[in-house]
């Protein structure tokens, strides 16, 4: 026993990482199914039904189809970047999910005390991947899309980080597990409802959620894909699994965004009623958020590009600055007396 003792953390790390990869893969595949089913229900139709019971094997069939197709690199395209871009979409999402505390004990083997920063550092690579993909495709629609993605993400990174700073001021730590631990055991202890720290806390959650949608290029902010304007935007020239990986990357990024929202605002694995805290609460909250993302997509038309930027610069950034200031004031208020 003692012989293996020094290797145990490494084994644990390996298992955790493999588990994360499996979790992302499974989710990326099955969130597509969830989306299609959800879209179907919103539109009064059953969605995929043919492959397996309730179409449950549909992602498998789709994956097989995509894998059997040739990955065509258009003539004149930058082949290296063109192939690299899909990998760059999905890899950061994997990295981010490795830092998320799923439950009190089910978390990154090393207690990362800068987890929050790491998530944002890796989360931004997604943008660069789409930009590279669009740039390397040598397609006019793809280049327009690439240009859009950059300005969109730059615009939305700011309010998102401002909101996160607000949270940071309230929690005082960047360790994601510690942030979750602070928010318990009842739902009024969640950051979302800590209105005595900052009366605008629910608003900050809404801003975070909107920014998350914009960062992951989800409808109504799907400027990068915008299929009725840019055909398929940055993904126009991708075929086969190249497109498939982009597609999975989109869902992996949604997963990251929703996990982060759960951790930062909804108390992570904490139970809302003080009973049985654990991983199930985390997943319940996570998938409720994912459902909301799907719900929003199938309800609204796409925003116009300047509308999107105006929303960020004229509404979200001022409001998030106000919440930031307000939190600072509330925190320093006791010093006055």
């Amino acid at each position: 026993m003692s012989f293996f003792e020094p290797y145990l953390p490494a084994v644990r790390l390996l298992i955790f990482l493999v588990g994360t990869v499996a979790f992302v893969g499974l989710n990326a595949a099955y969130l597509v199914w969830v989306e299609r089913k959800g879209a179907g229900r919103f539109q009064r139709r059953p969605g995929p039904m043919e492959v397996g019971p309730q179409g449950l094997l549909q992602p498998l069939a789709d994956g097989l189809k995509l894998m059997s197709k040739q990955l065509i690199v258009p003539p004149g395209a930058d082949a290296t970047l063109f192939r690299l871009a899909p990998a760059m979409v999905i890899a950061p999402a994997l990295m981010c999910l490795a830092t998320i505390p799923y439950s009190e004990s089910l978390l990154a083997p090393r207690n990362l005390n800068i987890g929050l920063i790491m998530v944002f550092a890796f989360g931004s690579i997604n943008v660069m991947a789409i930009m590279l993909g669009g740039w390397a495709s040598r397609n006019k629609y793809a280049i327009i899309s690439a240009a859009r993605v950059v300005s969109q993400n730059v615009a939305y990174e700011i309010p998102m980080l401002l909101v996160v700073i607000t949270i940071l001021m309230v929690t005082g730590t960047m360790n994601l597990n510690d942030i979750v631990k602070q928010q318990g055991p009842y739902f009024w202890d969640w950051n979302l409802f800590r209105v005595w720290e900052n009366p605008l806390m629910p608003v900050t959650f809404v801003i975070f959620f909107i920014c998350m949608l914009a960062e992951t290029n989800r409808a109504p902010f799907d400027m990068a894909e915008a299929e009725s304007e840019l055909v398929a935007g940055a993904f126009t020239e991708y075929a086969g699994m190249g497109f498939g990986v982009f597609f999975m990357g989109e869902y992996a990024n949604i997963l990251v965004g929703c996990s982060l929202a759960t951790v930062l605002f909804l108390g992570g694995w904490q139970s809302p009623i003080g009973l049985f805290p654990g991983v199930w609460w985390f997943f319940l909250k996570l998938y409720a958020l994912v459902f909301t993302v799907v719900w929003i997509r199938w309800t609204f038309p796409r925003t116009q590009f300047y509308g999107l930027l105006n929303l960020s610069w004229k509404i979200l950034i001022p409001i998030s600055l106000v919440t930031l200031l307000l939190t600072a004031v509330v925190m320093k208020l006791p010093l006055l007396f």
Binding site: A39, Q43, S228
Partner: peptide, 10 residues
């Protein structure tokens, strides 16, 4: 065309 998919099915 504006990106809202559900109305056409209604």
């Amino acid at each position: 065309d504006l990106g809202g998919f559900t109305p056409i099915l209604y």
